[in-house]
Design a protein around this nucleic acid. Structure first.
Length: 301
DNA sequence: TTTGGAAATAGACCCGGCTT
DNA sequence: AAGCCGGGTCTATTTCCAAA
């Protein structure tokens, strides 16, 4: 059987980054923490903590840490149902939920849902950002308990719900348009006008070029890994890029941004996937995510 | 290279729970 | 009651590593 005293010590060292802070958190001496960690490592025959400043988790240590997060969440859930047990030896630190999302969701609608959830439950969140086509992998690896994904295929062991569509438009400032597309948005001009790309995984601009303009070359690009910065860069006339309507509706209405080719949105359907293991405690999160998504995203088919 | 901080290690000791 | 055992504290010392 797993020794939860030792498990807690390892999780505390990894969370706080040092044996001393972990000891303070657990109300024991650093020596005791060191002994617990060493003991568990010996028993499992594997290193769990990379000693350093700060101390970090090995792959197995990270697994163990996430296991402790889940245990803490289940305990919190249990205590709510059995308040008489409260005040025992149970760790009463706030629970941290690790979630993955794509940057544009985080920059538009997702934070509102997370904030509502956190206020309601008191849970802390640890948000990992990756491309919407890669967040499912975080779930598969067990590194997060829930994720906003671009994949409809349910991840094994997860419950999936459609969220709606994040609608993007190819946008640029009027000055950019007049400088690069004075005689119209032609294929020749598009092949030369600088575009904006979020990061190496961002294929939205090229997708729009291919799907609506039948262009399969890669124009010169700026690299700009910031959702807000992306809009700012468009406003300032650095280049054109695919921006979510949620961020640019006001600019499009006021004319500070213009759609390159009117009425050519690119739709990215999003899905919410939650680990079944933690589905009950995360019910509140799912409720808030679905509610905010319903009000902010475009309804899918 | 020196130095200082953090962690590991080892030994002496204490304490509570069990067993005899 | 005595003794054992596990797990803790305290202290001194060593080791390691990064910053000066």
């Amino acid at each position: 059987m797993l020794d939860y005293l030792s498990l807690r010590a390892v999780a505390a060292v990894i969370r706080t980054g040092s044996f001393e802070r972990a000891a303070r958190q657990l109300h024991v001496t650093p020596s005791a923490v060191s002994q617990r960690v060493r003991q568990l490592e010996d028993r499992l025959g594997t290193v769990l903590v990379v000693r350093g400043t700060p101390c970090t988790a090995t792959e197995k240590g990270a697994w163990l840490c996430r296991h402790m997060d889940q245990v803490a969440m289940l305990e919190t859930d249990l205590l709510e149902k059995l308040p008489a047990l409260d005040g025992g030896s149970v760790d009463t630190r706030p629970v941290t939920v690790r979630i993955a999302t794509n940057a544009d969701s985080l920059g538009t609608w997702f934070l509102e849902a997370v904030a509502n959830f956190s206020r309601e439950t008191g849970y802390l969140v640890d948000i990992a950002v990756d491309d919407q086509d890669h967040t499912a992998a975080w779930l598969e690896r067990g590194e997060v308990l829930a994720a906003v994904t671009g994949m409809s295929r349910p991840v094994q062991g997860c419950r999936q719900s459609p969220l709606g569509i994040l609608r993007y438009r190819a946008t640029a400032s009027p000055t950019f348009i007049s400088r690069h597309f004075a005689d119209g948005v032609t294929r020749e001009r598009l092949a030369r006008a600088p575009l904006l790309t979020f990061n190496r995984k961002d294929g939205l601009q090229l997708r729009w070029l291919a799907e609506t303009m039948d262009i399969d070359t890669s124009p010169p690009t700026h690299w700009l890994p910031s959702t807000q910065g992306f809009v700012e860069a468009c406003l300032s006339g650095m280049g054109w890029g695919m921006n979510p309507d949620l961020l640019t509706a006001g600019h499009l209405a006021s004319g500070r941004l213009v759609e390159l080719v009117a009425g050519t949105p690119v739709d990215v359907p999003l899905f919410w996937q939650v680990s079944r293991l933690a589905a009950a405690p995360l019910e509140a999160l799912t409720r808030h995510v679905l509610s905010v998504a319903r009000s902010r995203l475009v309804a899918s088919g």
